[in-house]
Design a protein around this nucleic acid. Structure first.
Lengths: 223, 223
DNA sequence: CAGTTGAAGAGAGTGACATTCTCGCTTCTC
DNA sequence: GAGAAGCGAGAATGTCACTCTCTTCAACTG
């Protein structure tokens, strides 16, 4: 806003001074936002569910209700922010795993397996510093219903990455797909909801592993 | 309950008499329950969402709050009942479609395609007498989180049917799977959540059709 | 330095719900 | 016809998200 208001023929020092105070204001604001996010993450980790109240977040973050609604339009916006944060972390992990492979099919495989493990962290022990992702995964189902566009936007980088891997594998001739975009959608859905579907299976021995899910996808992609 | 309480050496007429009044009581109760269900279905159809209040159901069904809580433990139980009802209808439709085919692979295909269409009725025009299933499908996501066992139980007949079809196709040699149970889980998940994943795709032209989803599964099953 | 302004905290107030409770009014039953 | 069981009407309660008001305090301004 101040940036937009800054006149082009203002002396440079003034622009710099303004932007410095703006930067300060922004970083102060970001820190405040971060405190809300941290408090919410803590609550989720402790409760193992997203059923916290705003009041709890306020108390925990030692801030005011008024402040909360100044930064977030409502509880959904807060949870959406948590979700975006989580997906960003996941993306980093997945990209790191993918980059460690060079063979196109291996890259695709590691993407699928890592994504599966990320969505359902019950199997893999929780890394230090990372959060109770299961609760967030679960809540993301509700978000996908009520805020499909926001969830889609948050997942877009992952979708793009996957499409790229599929195109690369297709070019290398190790899979054969007609339409990379659709193939990517199918793989993403199959992997991401496989953990969710597991809870609808009665016999625990029949729960699907990341590896099995990937095998299914691999064949689906016509090796 | 009356049947269980009926003593074996009671005179038969008495058993019959008791069971008659019990039958009457039961059918009266069932009718009352049904009125709640009908009212809720109407509200869902009108609103296109499951965000109705209990009060609305009460008003619509011309019954009392007290009566509602006499028959249902809470709102979730009501929605669960709606879900079960819907799944039952779906099961009937799907079984009918499957029975019209004789080739094992064709039977499997029609199962997948019909299930997909049923979950995402946005594409196919709504049949007379059937309900706004999309809203219920959406809500079933939340149910699956909070009442996984109930949802699993409701879907069990469908799962069993699918497994049977997969075993039959495997026996006939038109597909090859190691473990029918897991294969069934994979197909069911892929098909049932494919409609859900569609909303996370930005370009509407990339939305997956039932046929594409089935093709993916078919290859995944190793034709 | 005194006055002004704007950011931020404390917390009371509102409204929407689900759920429970209480009080009668019927309608069987003996 | 008294008593009980069933049930409708709707007031009362509790929990939330969210809004509003009042106050405080610290940074600018002249």
């Amino acid at each position: 806003m101040a940036g937009a208001a800054a006149d082009a023929n203002e002396p440079a020092w003034r622009t710099r001074a303004v932007s410095r105070t703006m930067d300060a204001a922004r970083s102060r604001a970001e820190e405040r936002v971060q405190r809300f996010l941290d408090a919410a993450f803590e609550l989720i980790d402790e409760k193992g569910s997203t059923e916290f109240t705003i009041q709890e977040v306020i108390d925990r973050s030692k801030q005011s209700l008024r402040g909360f609604y100044e930064y977030f339009d409502g509880k959904d916006e807060l949870v959406l922010a948590l979700f975006e944060e989580t997906v960003r972390e996941a993306g980093d992990d997945i990209r790191a795993a993918v980059d460690a492979e060079s063979d196109p099919l291996a890259r695709l495989r590691i993407f699928a397996v890592t994504l599966h493990e990320w969505c359902d962290p019950a199997e893999t022990p929780r890394k230090r510093g990372s959060h109770q992702r299961r609760a967030i995964s679960e809540f993301s189902m509700r978000l996908a219903v009520n805020h499909a566009d926001r969830v889609r936007a948050a997942l877009a980088p992952l979708s793009r990455e996957l499409r790229g891997l599929i195109e690369a594998a297709d070019d290398a001739g190790v899979i054969h797909v007609d339409d990379a975009r659709r193939a990517a959608a199918l793989v993403q859905q199959t992997v991401m909801y496989s953990w969710f579907g597991n809870r609808l299976v009665d016999d625990p021995r029949s729960r699907l592993t990341p590896e099995e899910t990937w095998e299914f996808c691999r064949r689906g992609l016509g090796v």
